[in-house]
Design a protein around this nucleic acid. Structure first.
Lengths: 235, 235
DNA sequence: AGAAAAACCATACCGGGTTCGGAAACGAAC
DNA sequence: GTTCGTTTCCGAACCCGGTATGGTTTTTCT
């Protein structure tokens, strides 16, 4: 494989920066730590730090997120996008966390969760990443729908907008994935042990996709009002 | 009414800042205009500008967004949250734009749309606002569900998570509203006349809520694969 | 060994946003 | 109309994240 001293050093420096930053963030809060401090503590110059990570946020969020668009594009023949996504999410939920990026320790992951959940700026950044993923997913879904079975009944919906349906599907799917992430993180941050949280996540995936596939109507109608009981739906 | 000179001046200054900024952004692009320039052109100091608007983005995005959580909270008796939201969105779509904030000219609104859609930073900020709205909506939905008809069949879903279902509903609804906004803006920005865009939006609302209520399964199954035609769903 | 390439760094700079102490404008009272 | 408290405004300095510049060290190839 020929490791190559250069690349080894690079990898090590990158790791050192991320680790140092995480430690500082966890100890003193994300906003209270400046990039200068991180750079100094990690033994590099600020400009070098920014050659490894494009922004302060990226130091923490490196590798967070999921390639949903890729899942749709690489799905097996005869498989619907939604089914492929569901299967993928099942896998992700089932996979014991900690092996995300080769040698990630459980403690490090917990620290990351702690730091992220306690910083509005980082939560916003996660939101941003989700939005970006959503756009990619919308494109992938539009392609899948376009190259699909052909001009069948579904065209009644799809023909109208630019590709509104693809966008709506993408929006709902990424929203759901985001909510799952959020729920998982919040549980972890509030003390739920990892194993328990993982089990809950697995169940949540099913709940979420059932809701996605079969609609909100069922979940909605039992919450008509605090006193009224007659439910005339407004359609 | 008692105008009061002081408040009149304040309102006028605020308006002047916003107008000046919008004009500059539209002419030269959001990123190419500094807040110093805006302040100078508007005849105020930078610090004063930031006393009127909390950030550069807020100058453009002032008043953008919709109080979805309030709609749920203020819905009439015997009305399901989803129905209330649908009705509200129908109203918004039907209302001729331009009367959003008392004296907004149609040209100004178009300029705003142009500026927002052509700036990644502003689109990101819109995303952020949507996220904030989503959290409020989730809380409102959770309250509605909690105080709802009581312990019926739906508890099978709701009892498990913290309030996962409320979060999922909120996520999907705001995602859909965001997608509608986005589609509307993009059409406007790409030259579609206002009236036409409004009509399309009205139709889109129905499409979107049908999808929300009845699920993605119907829209999904006709896009099985680019070559395969047998569609066995993977559930 | 020596040269090309790549990584690193110090420094200065930019723009968004805040802090601070004082000056000016307003409103009300006399 | 003068006084006086309050609100608004402002200039200047500052902080922080991020970028541009140009030179120095380190690694790799020959």
């Amino acid at each position: 494989m020929m490791a190559g001293l250069r690349e080894r050093k690079k990898a090590e420096t990158r790791r050192r920066i991320a680790e140092t930053a995480l430690r500082l963030f966890d100890a003193r809060g994300y906003d209270a730590v400046t990039v200068n401090e991180i750079a100094e503590a990690a033994g590099v110059a600020k400009v070098t730090l920014f050659s490894y990570f494009p922004s302060k946020e990226a130091i923490v969020l490196d590798g967070v997120g999921d390639d949903l668009a890729g899942v749709v594009e690489r799905r097996g023949a005869g498989r619907t996008p939604l089914a492929a996504l569901r299967a993928h999410l099942r896998e992700v939920a089932a996979r014991p966390p900690g092996e995300a990026d080769a040698g990630e320790l459980a403690g490090e992951l917990m620290a990351r969760v702690r730091v992220i959940t306690s910083s509005p700026a980082l939560l916003a950044a996660v939101e941003q990443a989700n939005a970006a993923e959503r756009h990619r997913l919308a494109a992938a879904l539009a392609a899948a729908r376009g190259a699909g079975g052909g001009a069948d009944g579904g065209a009644a919906l799809g023909a109208g907008g630019d590709d509104l349906v693809a966008r709506l599907m993408a929006a709902q799917v990424t929203a759901v994935v985001g909510a799952l992430q959020e729920a998982f993180f919040l549980r972890l941050a509030s003390g739920t042990p990892m194993e328990e949280a993982g089990r809950r996540l697995t169940a949540d995936v099913e709940t979420a996709f059932d809701l996605l596939e079969h609609g909100l109507a069922a979940a909605d109608e039992h919450a008509t009002q605090q006193n009224g009981d007659s439910h005339e739906d407004g359609r």
